[in-house]
């Protein structure tokens, strides 16, 4: 078994159009590193020098990883990681 990562429309250019891809790793950071090895460029859309990008939401199963352990959140086979770009904006 692997970890399923669900990819939003706007990032499917990195996955050849796939809505979901498999990955491996013991933490979210390792899973993102594993994805990067097969889908170059994806990591840069998810993380920056300070950690997860502010306007990207990442969920482990049903929880926002910001309320878990961020990039060091432990993951296990059979888990689902969902990526959703935040919907945000404003008057300025």
């Amino acid at each position: 078994m692997a970890i399923e990562i669900r990819i939003p429309t706007i990032l499917r250019t990195y996955t050849g159009g796939a809505k979901a891809v498999d990955g491996t790793g013991a933490t979210l950071e390792e899973v993102i590193g594993d994805l990067e090895s097969r889908h170059p460029g994806l990591r840069d859309r998810l993380v920056d020098d300070s950690g997860l990008r502010r306007f990207v939401n990442v969920y482990l199963n049903d929880e926002d990883v910001r309320f878990l352990g961020g990039l060091s959140t432990p993951v296990a086979d059979g888990d689902t990681v969902t990526v959703l770009p935040a919907v945000a904006g404003g008057a300025r």
Binding site: N57, Y59, D62, D64, R66, T82, L84, A86, V87, A88, G89, G90, A91, R92
Partner: peptide
């Protein structure tokens, strides 16, 4: 954000 100049969907509601 409950703001007059910014909005952001609540992350869990969006999920």
């Amino acid at each position: 954000e409950r703001s007059p100049t910014f909005y952001r969907f609540d992350s869990m509601e969006q999920f």
